[in-house]
């Protein structure tokens, strides 16, 4: 039953009740009054129906139309809010993920910064060590030069020693020749003594002693020659060894010189590396600061997204409430419309 119908029926009932009370109170006069009252009630009802149809029906139609529109818009708003809510949720999730990633990135950048600082320190240490190494190798080169000069001097001395020992050998040969000559003289003296018979016996003894001395000299010179030969062999070995050492030292000098050049080049390279590492460390520090700022900004965005999501949720609640209200309004309007129609139908 629609509201207008109810309203009319209620009016009629009230009127009938008033008439009945009046009738009950005033029975003598009651027939006329009742009739009149009924007539008035009927007129009033008819007037009410007429007025309601005349004035309420368009109003109800308008209400219904507005209610429908509100309902439709509320649905659209709700749908949009739902969509927005989904987007906000995804946005919030993405922002959280980005924030987490940025925090991780910031942490990694911090670690890289620490490592790059370590690289800088290591590069500085390497640079210092390389400089020390270059200086040491240079010192080594000087020492090797000294050794080389000493070996050259020793070699000259050894060669001189060999030359002197050859001279001694020549002297020994001379002594040997003299001893051999002496031996020959002694032999000849012995022969003379033998030919002299008994008279040459003493002379023969002297000759034998001289020959023995000569033999002894020859033995000694032979021994000395043997020793000198050993010395000369040792000298030759020493000369060869010294020449080999000299060659090795020259090679060592060349290697040391190359090492110095390489170390100097390394110093340049290490300096460049240290500078690059320093620059990398600085850049990473700046990047870390920037990433921290990004993290802060993303946290702000995250907070904004969270607030936005809450607002959307609140809006969604309000929209849902609005939709409920529009449903109620539509139902009310429908009730009113139904009442009008049923009255019309009846």
């Amino acid at each position: 039953m629609k509201l207008t119908t109810k309203f009319v029926v209620m009016n009629a009932v009230l009127l009938a009740a008033a008439v009945a009370l009046t009738t009950f109170s005033f029975t003598g006069f009651k027939a006329v009054v009742v009739v009149r009252t009924l007539v008035v009630a009927a007129i009033f009802s008819a007037l009410s129906i007429f007025l309601s149809r005349r004035f309420f029906s368009p109003l109800i139609d308008s209400f219904s139309e507005i209610s429908e529109k509100i309902h439709s818009r509320a649905g659209a708003i709700s749908s949009a809010i739902n969509q927005q809510s989904g987007l906000a949720t995804r946005l919030s999730s993405s922002v959280v993920e980005i924030s987490s990633t940025m925090e991780e990135f910031s942490s990694t950048a911090s670690q890289i910064s620490q490592h790059s600082q370590g690289v800088v320190e290591r590069a500085d240490k390497t640079l210092e060590d390389t400089k020390v190494g270059a200086t040491e190798v240079e010192n080594l080169t000087f020492k090797v030069n000294d050794i080389s000069q000493n070996i050259e001097a020793n070699l000259s001395e050894i060669v001189e020693l060999g030359r002197r020992s050859k001279e001694i050998n020549k002297i020994m040969e001379i002594i040997n020749n003299i001893a051999n000559q002496t031996k020959l003289i002694a032999f000849n003296a012995a022969l003379e003594a033998a030919s002299a018979g008994e008279a040459g016996k003493r002379f023969g003894v002297v000759a034998i002693e001289i020959r023995r001395l000569a033999d002894s000299v020859v033995e000694s010179t032979t021994e000395i020659e043997g020793k000198i030969t050993e010395i000369q062999d040792a000298v030759n070995r020493l000369v060869m060894s010294s020449e080999k050492s000299s060659e090795l030292i020259q090679e060592g000098q060349q290697y040391a010189a190359q090492t110095v050049v390489m170390l100097i080049e390394s110093v340049d390279g290490v300096e460049e590396t240290a500078n690059a590492a320093r620059q990398i460390s600085l850049s990473i520090q700046q990047q870390q600061i920037a990433s921290s700022q990004v993290v802060t900004a993303i946290k702000d965005i995250e907070e904004g997204a969270r607030v936005s999501t809450e607002s959307i949720q609140q809006s969604n609640g309000a929209t849902a409430e609005l939709a409920g209200l529009t449903d109620e309004l539509r139902s009310l309007v429908n009730s009113l419309k139904t009442g009008t129609v049923s009255r019309e139908n009846s």
């Binding site: 020959l184 000849n188 022969l191 033998a194 030919s195």
Partner: peptide, 10 residues
Amino acid sequence: EADQVERVDS
């Protein structure tokens, strides 16, 4: 025999 030798020489 030494008698047979007159002299020794280099």
